[in-house]
Computed example of a mutant assay.
Amino acid sequence: MTGSGAGSPAVRLIVPGNVLHNSGGNAYNAALARGLTALGADVDICRIDGTWPVGSEEERRRLAGLLLDGADDVGSAGREATVPPVTIVDGLVALGAPSALEEAAAAGRPAWILVHMQLAEHPDLEGRALAAAAGVICASSTAASELQARHSLLRLNSAGRSTTPIHVALPGTSAAPTAAGSNPPHFLAVAALLPNKDQLLLLKALAGLRDLPWTASLVGSDAADPAYAEAVRSAVTALGLRDRVSVEGELRGPALETEWDRADLSLLISQAETYGMVVTESLARGIPVVVRDGTGAVEALAAGSRGAAEAPDGGGGASALPGAAVVLGTDPAPLERALRRWLSTPELRLRWREAALAARNRLPGWDVTAGTVLDFIAAAG
């Protein structure tokens, strides 16, 4: 594996300055930077403000200028560089600003794009940006498959030759203590309060379980979409769950670790998810997870498993997966049934817990992610 000593390149990582909550993309970028540094790379993190994705004309011009900056102006160690750094741009910034990527490529300074999620609303801009990139690194196989399905030019051009390469560098996982759990069982949903994360559907499912003992915490930013956050808080009251469910807002440090430690089951039922790092963060603590089937969170759920497949509704047969992928639409009943079965079946709780404990020992660390990225860069160089 590439990545230690003098052979490691200087890397400039351009990330959005307008995402202030603790998103999965932000967490990935920060952990990747630490991993690259640990492997000997000189990493410079550049935060660029803007109304990303797409941004204004002025913001896109600033991005183009940053991509074309001279090598002497970069380097976190303050060294005088003679070789331009390898530039990696977060897809939230890059995918809606193809002109900046094209200008950099025309000047012989093509940038890599790190894709956490596709830019579904602007496929034309996305396609142009990807085509102008030195290479594309996706944070999940799901994201890579979606891009290839949307943009066939990324696989073969009209002459039958490969064009922009697409690579996958799965998120790593940091070591964490095993969660102690609670009595009664405690559900934990770690996600910003956003419509895509579908906390309202989760609350409706939990409301149907009031005949069983349990508690739950919703942990995540309530500033990203204040109106939705208020709707979630109102639903807790309207559904009669104030004595069961706490809405904690965004937590960090010891307060977040306390929530992880008391959890018995983690829930991530996003309507769309390219991976879902909170899933592997749960497994790192021996906490099984329920996710929505058909999203990238299913890939994360299997990250530490050995190829076993769970029935979509979480029932039937033995499984080595630490949880279940539930088929969900707008009806909370399937989720309610899956959670009721878990609450009511000690054998199932034990099986999922044992699978989660086994998975935590097989999860790759961020050193693997960083080394994979360096390998991609070296192969392209």
Rank of each mutant, 00 (worst) to 15 (best):
A107E: 11
G160C: 00
E126A: 08
N183Q: 15
E80D: 14
A131D: 12
Q148A: 15
A105R: 05
G181R: 11
L154C: 01
L188R: 10
A149L: 13
G75W: 05
A144G: 04
P84C: 05
V86C: 10
G127I: 04
A106P: 00
L119W: 11
L193M: 08
S152M: 08
S162G: 14
G181E: 08
H186M: 09
G96S: 09
S152D: 13
A100T: 06
G108M: 02
R109Q: 12
D90I: 03
T87H: 09
A107I: 05
E121K: 13
A133I: 03
T163K: 12
R109M: 09
T164G: 06
R79D: 10
A129L: 09
G108F: 02
S174L: 14
T82C: 11
G91A: 04
R155T: 14
T173Y: 02
L188T: 01
T173C: 06
T142P: 08
P110W: 05
T164Q: 04
R161A: 15
P98C: 08
T173L: 03
A107M: 01
A133H: 00
A129K: 03
A104C: 08
G96V: 09
E103G: 12
L170M: 10
P177R: 07
N157L: 12
F187G: 05
S140A: 06
G135H: 07
E146F: 13
I113R: 01
A139D: 07
G91H: 07
P171A: 06
R161W: 14
S140M: 04
S140N: 05
A111V: 09
G91V: 08
A176D: 00
H151A: 08
A77L: 11
A120W: 11
L92N: 12
L119K: 01
L125G: 03
S158D: 14
R150H: 08
V115L: 01
L101Y: 04
A132M: 04
T164S: 10
L194D: 10
L193V: 05
L147W: 02
V136D: 00
V190F: 00
H116W: 04
L125T: 04
S158G: 14
G108R: 06
V89I: 01
E121Q: 14
S99L: 15
I137F: 04
V136I: 15
A81C: 06
V89C: 07
P195E: 05
L156C: 11
R161N: 12
G135D: 10
R155V: 15
A81L: 15
A179C: 04
G91C: 09
V190C: 00
A176P: 00
